[in-house]
């Protein structure tokens, strides 16, 4: 039942991959030329091949892997807590409109504070390490989960809820059997946004606190050393790759789990 607009026809999967890779290749070639031709100084922007080679060699560097693992751990713990807090809170606020109105002002006040701005404050209180990182990640990542849960609940079809109510299901049962599954695609999108934010916060906190362990620490320390640009950029390539991997996994998961969502909205239009 999905409708296809011929002008926006989706490329087949390999086609999409090829185009994505072509973009990367152009970028790499540009940096390669700029570096090798001496237009930009090598210490400032090493050629792409050098950066990539360094990035690959880092995969065999035990020290680097410890750093990477430390970042992933903080990311995972922070994100898990953010989901564990954001979803139930969102269900509560979305399910009880009175509560939502009451809490709205507090939320609207807190939300615009860029979480990166909280890094110095939290580091001051909690020091540097997993606790600080996780705290900041939870704060930043809980928002998209919370908001998408609330909006997802508001989008639930009242007739579906009414049908189950007519069969005698209570409010909580209807929440569990209708509202939560119906809102799940929205919540998943929130989680995907939160996962990206969490990675930014993880690496950002590590860079700003300057010591301890993590991908950000690796980048920050490379910055201090002579000829460190190569390592800084190689570390950045890893951070980007990690983000890309996380996003791909989540998008694929959403497509598989929520096939019904696309089929339904596609057929309705």
């Amino acid at each position: 039942m999905t409708t296809h607009n011929p002008r926006f026809r989706r490329l087949p999967r390999t086609g999409r991959w090829l185009r994505g890779l072509a973009g990367l290749a152009v970028l790499a070639a540009a940096s390669e030329i700029l570096g090798r031709a001496g237009i930009v100084h090598r210490d400032f922007l090493p050629p792409a091949s050098t950066i990539l080679a360094r990035a690959v060699s880092l995969a065999g560097d035990a020290d680097f892997l410890t750093n990477l693992w430390s970042t992933i751990k903080a990311w995972a713990i922070g994100l898990a807590i953010a989901i564990g807090a954001g979803v139930p809170l969102g269900l509560l606020l979305g399910g009880v409109p009175v509560l939502n109105t009451a809490v709205r002002a507090v939320i609207e006040f807190l939300r615009p504070i860029p979480s990166v701005a909280l890094i110095p404050l939290v580091s001051l209180i909690l020091g540097s390490g997993l606790t600080t990182e996780a705290t900041l990640i939870v704060y930043a990542a809980a928002w998209p989960v919370l908001f998408n849960t609330i909006y997802g609940l508001q989008d639930v079809d009242p007739l579906a809820k009414e049908t189950l109510r007519a069969f005698g299901f209570g409010r909580l049962s209807v929440m569990w059997r209708v509202s939560l599954p119906a809102a799940a695609p929205f919540i998943a999108t929130g989680v995907r946004l939160a996962a990206a934010t969490a990675l930014i916060l993880a690496v950002g906190t590590e860079i700003l606190s300057g010591f301890g362990q993590g991908l950000g620490t690796f980048i920050a320390q490379a910055q201090q050393s002579i000829d460190g640009t190569k390592d800084v950029l190689a570390g950045t390539v890893w951070a980007g790759g990690l983000g890309l991997l996380i996003n791909t996994v989540l998008v694929t998961g959403e497509r598989r789990l929520f096939r019904w969502h696309g089929a339904q909205t596609g057929g309705r239009s």
């Binding site: 079809d157 007739l159 579906a160 049908t163 059997r177 209708v178 599954p181 119906a182 799940a184 929520f258 019904w260 969502h261 089929a263 339904q264 309705r268």
Partner: peptide
């Protein structure tokens, strides 16, 4: 009347 909204698509 509205079966498509009354059934649970998942």
């Amino acid at each position: 009347q509205d079966y498509s909204r009354s059934l649970l698509p998942w």
